[in-house]
Design a protein around this nucleic acid. Structure first.
Lengths: 141, 141
DNA sequence: ACCTTCTTTAGAATTATTCCTATTTGATAA
DNA sequence: TTATCAAATAGGAATAATTCTAAAGAAGGT
């Protein structure tokens, strides 16, 4: 995710409004490395801004995804997870216990993102490896 | 996805049962290239086996995912999509209209899947490129 | 064929996400 | 400041996805 000032400018430039809700959500995501779900974020933000609606949160999240500022991915646990870190990295998802960790660049190197593929203008790339984590492998044996 | 005979053996080997419902779902997925959602499949299968429950369909799908036989991914349109084609390919997802196409290997080459990353036993890999499709680019201009 | 055992199923209940719309609020300019 | 207008919000309704549990069904031995 870009710095918040850049998001402010982006919203203004397209005739949008910098609302308290958006700022709150942006700040909550900034630097977050926990791959939170929408519910996680809601539980965190509701006490801060009690009037906050879940719909508003989903709107803001989906808009960030459309801008390519945040990645959203399915970890196979029945929840959609969000990750503001759009730098080059893959996720490692355990198919048994659904824990998620970021794969280091060395073990899952990321190619440069091309500007265009098959006529599509490419904004973001997402990669997941699904498998069985060390703990679950041990538990099974 | 492997051939259906292989799935039959797999289920038997782990003490499971080859039910009519599983066979039906497996056959529906075999060779499907439409990236269907669970609802798509349900609509297709319900007339064939009217007693079929959505829960059964989800069970079967999630079990295939856990076996690494089918990939499931979030196309950002509010629906989870399933793809029985686990051969090496990335998906191209339009952030505006949410159409999904398979990227040819030439434009998005797939590395070999390592057996293990950071202690995880790797079973599957998923890759998506998010962007704006040619039609939406034209519409915007 | 008939039990027995254990898995799977159907349908309802629950939870997650998106959609809808009257109302509120930010931004702009007088 | 204040009025104006477009855009965002809140909250509830609608839709999507998952979980739960009693009942049904397949496999294997008798």
């Amino acid at each position: 995710m870009q710095r918040i000032e850049a998001l402010v400018q982006r919203v203004r430039a397209q005739g949008g409004k910098v609302t308290a809700q958006r700022m709150l959500i942006w700040r909550a995501l900034e630097g977050d490395q926990t791959h939170p779900t929408a519910e996680d974020l809601y539980a965190r933000l509701k006490p801060v801004l009690p009037g906050l609606s879940l719909a508003t949160l989903y709107n803001a999240l989906n808009e960030l995804v459309e801008w390519g500022e945040v990645r959203r991915f399915d970890a196979g646990d029945g929840h959609i997870h969000y990750d503001p870190d759009c730098s080059a990295h893959a996720e490692l998802v355990c198919l048994k216990c659904h824990t998620i960790i970021d794969a280091p660049q060395e073990v899952a190197p990321q190619p440069a993102i091309p500007d265009e593929i098959a006529g599509y203008r490419i904004l973001a790339r997402s990669e997941q490896y699904f498998g069985i984590c060390p703990a679950c492998r041990a538990a099974r044996a």
